[in-house]
Measured scan of single mutants.
Amino acid sequence: MATGGRRGAAAAPLLVAVAALLLGAAGHLYPGEVCPGMDIRNNLTRLHELENCSVIEGHLQILLMFKTRPEDFRDLSFPKLIMITDYLLLFRVYGLESLKDLFPNLTVIRGSRLFFNYALVIFEMVHLKELGLYNLMNITRGSVRIEKNNELCYLATIDWSRILDSVEDNYIVLNKDDNEECGDICPGTAKGKTNCPATVINGQFVERCWTHSHCQKVCPTICKSHGCTAEGLCCHSECLGNCSQPDDPTKCVACRNFYLDGRCVETCPPPYYHFQDWRCVNFSFCQDLHHKCKNSRRQGCHQYVIHNNKCIPECPSGYTMNSSNLLCTPCLGPCPKVCHLLEGEKTIDSVTSAQELRGCTVINGSLIINIRGGNNLAAELEANLGLIEEISGYLKIRRSYALVSLSFFRKLRLIRGETLEIGNYSFYALDNQNLRQLWDWSKHNLTITQGKLFFHYNPKLCLSEIHKMEEVSGTKGRQERNDIALKTNGDQASCENELLKFSYIRTSFDKI
């Protein structure tokens, strides 16, 4: 039985969820670079991206490699990797027998973001014989899940209580170790020597080791999670996991709180800001991140802002960003909400898709409305799209047979046209069989910064309504002859009103 693990408890099935942008060198404390989270699957090609990484700022997932063999891993080693800020997950990587050479110096898994409450997941690794993470000293947050690894031993010899604050939620089941077939031998045991430290858990006094050649490092209890030197002297209180010299914040392997210019500090002093819960960055760093993602459509890219001495992905609820200094300031009234469309555009074809934009005031991208039916549609669209004030790209209304009016965009005031449909149009209306009105132009103002209007096959939309939009939106004169079809717009509506004058002759039985 794995020490510190839980057996036999019912657990939810383990679901495996399925960018080499360097964020800056980590400095003297770390020998390499800070790398983003990685999802490495199918083959070993991307694994080489770990070569210079000291910190993975995010998670590391290595999974679904069915053609790899043990010899493929023999020359692979990433000794610079010290810390993973989120979680480490391995799933069905064939041929991998140990992690001792792959990650010989991995010391800390912070667990800032977890995989279903777990910071370390080893699942269905069919050839893994031992973990071998002999320098792993601290899992700051989260638990361990090690399950269905039929060859995995050296679990009962690990004292997880020396690595985690609590072992109650560890789930370590259905491994070879369960069948008591392992016969784990710690260093020196074969020669009758006791080389590794022994600890007591559940009444068992057991030597602690990761492999037959690597003991588990056990520091004096007084050192807590700070770690200790090879001689057993406690590291500085700002260290986490390990250090090369005692009581020196510049000799830590990793930091308990924050890293700044080669030393570990309790908090980031001005003019620095907390970033990702582990390091200090200056304003320029946060500003660069903001600008890199301002026009990016890459998933996970955030326009970072500053709030409460932190550089964070977005302002919290009730705050909006001051564009001059990136500071989050309290909103006066309802907060603006910028919604970034991942692929640059979004099609609204149902109430469900409209709900995804609920509360958005600025759309960074283009909207395509293609709704053919739905219950209580006008009210639903207004509830979900009615706060949109600005669209950076274009607005396209296409084959939306259920629409009679666009009044559900009740606050839309600006279409920038930074991206144009077919390279020309910022407003595009095609084949809307029941569209009769755009907006009530006596109450609604709309500016279209650039781009043209396109109207074709809107049989109940009168040309007068379209011409009014040209005047109000500032697009009059931009359109070419064929942009607004004269014969297919309003051709099934009563669009022309003329005053009919009647004269009559009164007659009676005795007068003409």
Results as ranks from 00 to 15, higher is better:
Leu120Glu: 00
Thr194His: 14
Pro31Met: 15
Val218Ser: 11
Ile158Met: 11
Ser166Tyr: 09
Arg110Cys: 08
Ile158Ala: 10
Asn117Gly: 13
Pro197Val: 06
Asp184Leu: 13
Asp39Val: 13
Glu168Ile: 07
Thr267Arg: 02
Lys67Cys: 08
Leu50Ser: 01
Arg279Leu: 12
Gln245Glu: 14
Leu102Tyr: 01
Arg92Leu: 15
Gly183Lys: 10
Asn117Gln: 08
Leu102Thr: 03
Asn325Ser: 15
Pro31His: 01
Ala156Arg: 11
Pro334Arg: 14
Pro269Val: 10
Met137Val: 11
Pro269Arg: 00
Val167Met: 01
Cys301Ile: 00
Ser237Cys: 09
Val218Gln: 13
Met137Leu: 08
Leu96Lys: 01
Cys223Met: 02
Leu120Ile: 10
Gly188Ser: 09
Leu120Met: 09
Ile62Ala: 01
Ile146Cys: 03
Leu332Ile: 06
Asp184Ala: 11
Gly95Ala: 08
Ser284Asn: 13
Ser244Asn: 07
Leu120Gly: 00
His291Pro: 02
Ser112Phe: 04
Leu128Ile: 08
Gln303Trp: 06
Leu63Gly: 13
Met137Gly: 11
Pro269Glu: 07
Gly241Trp: 02
Glu151Trp: 08
Gln287His: 13
Leu164Ala: 10
Tyr171Pro: 08
Phe116Gly: 12
His226Asn: 08
Ile185Phe: 03
Asp169Leu: 07
Ser324Gly: 10
Gly300Glu: 05
Glu97Leu: 05
Leu29His: 12
Tyr87Leu: 00
Lys129Thr: 14
His236Met: 03
Val55Thr: 04
His302Tyr: 09
Leu326Thr: 04
Ile306His: 02
Gln287Gly: 15
Cys53Leu: 00
Glu231Phe: 15
Gln204Tyr: 04
Cys255Lys: 01
Ile146Asn: 01
Glu57Phe: 02
Tyr171His: 10
Lys67Pro: 07
Gly95Arg: 04
Gly232Met: 04
Gln245Ala: 08
Cys219Ala: 07
His28Arg: 04
Ala156Gln: 11
Val144Gly: 02
Asn135Glu: 05
Asn150Arg: 14
Tyr272Ser: 03
Gly132Phe: 01
Pro104Leu: 01
Ser143Thr: 06
Lys67Leu: 06
Phe205Leu: 11
Ile163His: 01
Ile109Val: 10
Leu174Gly: 11
Tyr154His: 13
Trp210Thr: 05
Asn242Thr: 09
Leu136Phe: 04
Tyr30Leu: 14
Leu96Ser: 02
Ala230Gln: 15
Trp278His: 10
Glu124Ala: 04
Ser143Trp: 10
Thr329Met: 10
Ser324Thr: 07
Ala190Gln: 15
Pro220His: 04
Val34Arg: 05
Asn170Asp: 08
Gly183Tyr: 11
Arg297Ile: 07
Asp159Ala: 06
Glu57Lys: 02
Gly37Ala: 15
Thr107Lys: 14
Phe283Ile: 13
Ser77Lys: 06
Phe116Ile: 12
Pro270Asp: 11
Leu50Val: 06
Glu151Ser: 05
Ala119Met: 00
Pro36Tyr: 11
Leu152Met: 15
Ile109Met: 02
Cys268Pro: 00
Asp247Lys: 07
Gly37Lys: 03
Gly32His: 04
Phe285Ile: 03
Glu97Phe: 15
Phe91Arg: 05
Asn179Asp: 05
Ala190Leu: 10
Tyr118Leu: 03
Asn179Lys: 15
Ser324Asp: 15
Pro79Cys: 02
Pro336Ala: 05
Leu81Pro: 00
Ala230Ser: 09
Gly58His: 00
Thr68Val: 06
Ala190Trp: 10
Arg69Ile: 11
Asn175Thr: 13
Gln216Asn: 07
Thr250Gly: 08
Thr199Ile: 07
Thr107Ser: 11
Pro316Ile: 07
Thr211Gln: 04
Thr199Met: 04
Cys243Gly: 00
Thr199Phe: 10
Asn322Arg: 10
Pro334Asp: 04
Tyr272His: 04
Thr157Cys: 08
Cys196Phe: 11
Cys228Asp: 06
Ser244Leu: 05
Leu102Ile: 12
His214Glu: 07
Met125Leu: 03
Leu99Thr: 06
Thr85Leu: 07
Asp75Pro: 07
Arg141Met: 07
Asn105Ser: 11
Asp101Leu: 11
Asp86Ala: 02
Ser143Gln: 13
Cys53Lys: 00
Glu33Val: 07
Thr68Met: 13
Asn170Ile: 08
Ile40Leu: 07
His302Asn: 08
His307Thr: 02
Pro271Ala: 12
His302Ala: 11
Pro313Asn: 04
Cys286His: 03
His59Pro: 10
Gly300Phe: 05
Ile185Ala: 03
Leu260Thr: 06
Asp177Asn: 14
Ser225Met: 06
Gly142Ser: 02
Phe115Ile: 15
Ala198Gln: 02
His59Gln: 11
Phe116His: 02
His290Tyr: 13
Val121Phe: 02
Glu314Gly: 05
Asn242Ile: 06
Lys176Pro: 10
Cys228Val: 08
Gln216Lys: 03
Asp178Ile: 09
Pro104Glu: 01
Ile62Met: 06
Tyr304Thr: 14
Val265Asn: 02
Pro104Trp: 00
His214Leu: 09
Lys294Leu: 04
His302Pro: 06
Asn117Met: 12
Phe116Met: 10
Pro36Phe: 12
Cys328Asn: 02
Lys129Asn: 06
Glu49Gly: 05
Pro104Tyr: 01
Met83Pro: 00
Leu99Tyr: 01
Asp86Tyr: 01
His59Ala: 09
Leu89Asn: 01
Pro334Lys: 15
Asp165Leu: 10
Val167Cys: 14
His214Val: 12
His48Pro: 05
Leu131Trp: 01
Phe66Ser: 08
Glu51Asp: 00
Thr211Glu: 15
Glu231Ser: 08
Phe73Thr: 04
Leu106Ala: 00
Cys315Lys: 01
Cys331Met: 03
Thr85Gln: 11
Arg208Glu: 05
Phe283Leu: 09
His291Glu: 08
Cys219Arg: 04
Asp159Val: 06
Ser317Phe: 14
Asn150Val: 08
Tyr154Ala: 10
Cys280Ala: 00
Cys223Gln: 04
Cys186Ile: 09
Cys186Ala: 11
Ser143Leu: 09
Tyr118Met: 13
Leu240Asn: 13
Gln287Thr: 12
Thr189Ile: 13
Leu99Val: 09
Ser244Tyr: 05
Cys328Ile: 02
Cys234Thr: 02
Cys280Phe: 01
Val305Gly: 07
Phe116Leu: 12
His59Phe: 03
Gln276Thr: 11
Thr329Trp: 07
Glu124Trp: 02
Pro79Val: 03
Arg141Thr: 02
Ser284Glu: 15
Val144Arg: 01
Ile306Pro: 02
Gly227Arg: 03
Asn117Ser: 08
Thr320Gln: 06
Phe275Ala: 03
Pro36Gln: 11
Asp72Cys: 14
Arg74Phe: 06
Asp184His: 08
Ser77Asp: 03
Pro36Trp: 05
Leu155His: 15
Asn42Cys: 10
Gln287Ile: 12
Gly183Pro: 10
Phe285Ala: 07
Leu326Cys: 04
Ile56Arg: 11
